[in-house]
């Protein structure tokens, strides 16, 4: 890797500014209390923020592709684990989908 290709101070500053703007955008959007897509949008913004940190602050942009593969595979495992767990819980019909104490349950009087 040549010195010219290394992430510089201007790139760090731009990344930081981008992260602050995206965090503020997430915060402002949360005040809309958008029940349907609020979580999806805030997580999509979080993914963009994470990519900025990975590529510029953690220097993935200046490293070989093999290092990027590691994170890519890690993120795929996370997506599979979360996605399949949610799919199981959301589509399960053979067992009660949830347990909830009844109104008279000691849980509420503790």
């Amino acid at each position: 890797m040549s010195e010219a290709n290394k992430v510089g101070a201007v790139a760090y500053l731009g990344t930081f500014a981008g992260l602050v703007v995206l965090a503020t955008l997430s915060l402002l959007l949360s005040f809309l209390h958008w029940k349907g897509g609020g979580l999806v949008v805030s997580l999509a913004i979080a993914v963009v923020k994470a990519v900025l940190v990975l590529f510029f602050f953690m220097h993935l942009a200046e490293q070989r592709f093999t290092n990027r593969i590691t994170m890519l595979v890690g993120l795929m495992f996370v997506s599979l684990l979360v996605g399949l767990t949610v799919a199981d819980v959301a589509t399960r019909h053979t067992f009660p989908s949830r347990t909830k104490p009844s109104p008279g349950d000691p849980f509420y009087s503790r």
Partner: peptide, 29 residues
């Protein structure tokens, strides 16, 4: 650096289990 990335990916999997559990409960409640 490759070794460090593999270590960080393993850390990611530690939190992935917690995120999956959170997602399951959130789906239910």
């Amino acid at each position: 650096k490759l070794g460090m990335w593999v270590f960080l990916a393993s850390e990611l999997l530690l939190f992935a289990a917690l995120f999956a559990l959170y997602a399951a409960y959130r789906t239910m409640y």
